[in-house]
Design a protein around this nucleic acid. Sequence first.
DNA 1: ACGGCGACTGGAAGCGGTTCCGGTCCCGCC
DNA 2: GGCGGGACCGGAACCGCTTCCAGTCGCCGT
Lengths: 331, 331
Amino acid sequence: MDHPGRPPVTLEHVARAAGVSRATASRALTGSGPSAAGTRERVQAVAEQLGYVADPVARALVSGRGTRVVVAVTGMTADVLDDAYLARVVTTTARVSGAEGLGVALQWLPLDRPWPTLEQLSRDRTVAGAVLVNTTAAVLAGLPRSLRGRAVSIGASSPDVPAFDVDNGHGVRVAVSHLVRSGRRRIAMITGPAWLSCPEAGEASYAATVRAAGLPVRMVPGDFTVAAGRAGVHEVLRRWPDTDAVYAVCDDTALGALAVLQELGRQVPGDVAVAGFDDVPAAASSGPGLTTATHPVEQIAAAAAHAVLHRPDRGGGVTRFPSELVVRASA
Amino acid sequence: MDHPGRPPVTLEHVARAAGVSRATASRALTGSGPSAAGTRERVQAVAEQLGYVADPVARALVSGRGTRVVVAVTGMTADVLDDAYLARVVTTTARVSGAEGLGVALQWLPLDRPWPTLEQLSRDRTVAGAVLVNTTAAVLAGLPRSLRGRAVSIGASSPDVPAFDVDNGHGVRVAVSHLVRSGRRRIAMITGPAWLSCPEAGEASYAATVRAAGLPVRMVPGDFTVAAGRAGVHEVLRRWPDTDAVYAVCDDTALGALAVLQELGRQVPGDVAVAGFDDVPAAASSGPGLTTATHPVEQIAAAAAHAVLHRPDRGGGVTRFPSELVVRASA
DNA sequence: ACGGCGACTGGAAGCGGTTCCGGTCCCGCC
DNA sequence: GGCGGGACCGGAACCGCTTCCAGTCGCCGT
């Protein structure tokens, strides 16, 4: 037991105890310059024995190398932070960057005024890089220069910033096709928020798929929440009472829709089929189980985290990950 | 549009442009010392116009005042970060500390070796304080001194560290009593992990309640996950095939249990009743809806965040928040 | 034997702020 | 009119670390 905090031991202490200069001690510990084997071992031993831990702040101040990667998520309110999808992104980021000794921070980027926060981030030398989630092309385009080389995006893409995303065009097509094949003819979609560009591909894909089958396009807007699913269903049934299938942009919304349909006495999937996107855990335990397309969040987030750590300056371009249909009872 | 990042502007630039010294500029901007009204306004105007943002690292280095509060969660693996409960804690912490201009970071504390990480945290001058989640009395007792005054705990308590928790003793008693009152006579419980002290009160409360009703105590261990619920039910039915109610330490576990029971062809609540704790959103949308006790996470987290920001040195003591039963279809 | 080169080291200069300290200057008061 | 005191300012130290630079030393080549 030697952990509780004595007066903090600095590099100076280590250096003095090892009989070398601070410069030498620093080199011995970081391996950033020539260092005689004997000296290095001695310094390391002393440091170990004294319980020396380099001050990350001082280190960041001078070296400019940050010590944590921040996951920044755009949204109207800070509530976006409370999201199962985001939690998986954060976990994965923590795992990947943790393997290299870096921590992770979480940041809400106000949709209407993201720049002050971004500017702050770009100045903050403790941040090694940023993973932008749910962000917009505008934000990506206006990224402070100093953040440019160490940011990646999950979702929206831009010429400057590498992006990673699920192939939701494909996922949506497969899911909606499934509804069509199973005999549904009046398929409505509850979409994501209009400001968010990444689900556009999904909406376009839905529209294209139903149109190709000669079916009507019926879209109502949502915002990825359960509440949006509840409200969305009411809206859908009000505008098109004969709807026989609801496709939701994400599982949370689909589950909200499912609940309301049942409350209204509609049989699912008898009267109305429901399908979602993401395959969240709750999709498996809902009653009935939710038919949905997978979203390999962990893979995506791992790729993003890896990119932010190891490719400080690659240009844009989006990497897409495949989505697969999981058929359960709801459709 | 003047946001994207020019070469960073430092206090020196502002001072020079305003025709004052760095010291004066600093005082004018932070208000930490005497400053003539005219000077202050001029400096502030120049700073504004130049888009000056103080470097949080440099500031932290010298002033010792941190700029973000970290939520540290103890667990076997980093997977603990991926948890709806934690997400709500983080959101709330972000909201509360964001209101004072502080960010939030997330940190996994390895259950078997938490001290190196804690030591790191305590040294890191960018952290204003720490909220420890799901932690143990041992960790609390061994907290580095320098973290002592700026840490609070959600869950486990200790004489040194203020703690906040749901009154789960009461919540569990009410939930289990409900099972008893509705005629259940062989009530099993799937518990939390043995290393975690905070659900102990819940387990004790369960045991006391069933014992008081003259019923047998049947406990199997879990770890708060859905998987634990699935495995737990199998274990319960193997050991006590006549079980007519399952009470789970949390909703995730309860939902796992619920799913398995249905897969096994048991009627819920006909053959076996199921109840949980937390009232997560999924509890409302499961089929059948899950009977559960509420867990006012937001209130608790807000209190914790507030404490870490505003009471840098209060002693220990635990503040408990009430839990209420929500009766749905599962029990 | 000597010039040169490379490995190694220590001194010192920062990084960008905050804060102590001493110096002006002006005000009011005796 | 002299003086104490407070408001305000600038110089400089400092937080703990990295890194540039110049200097020492041993070793090799010729």
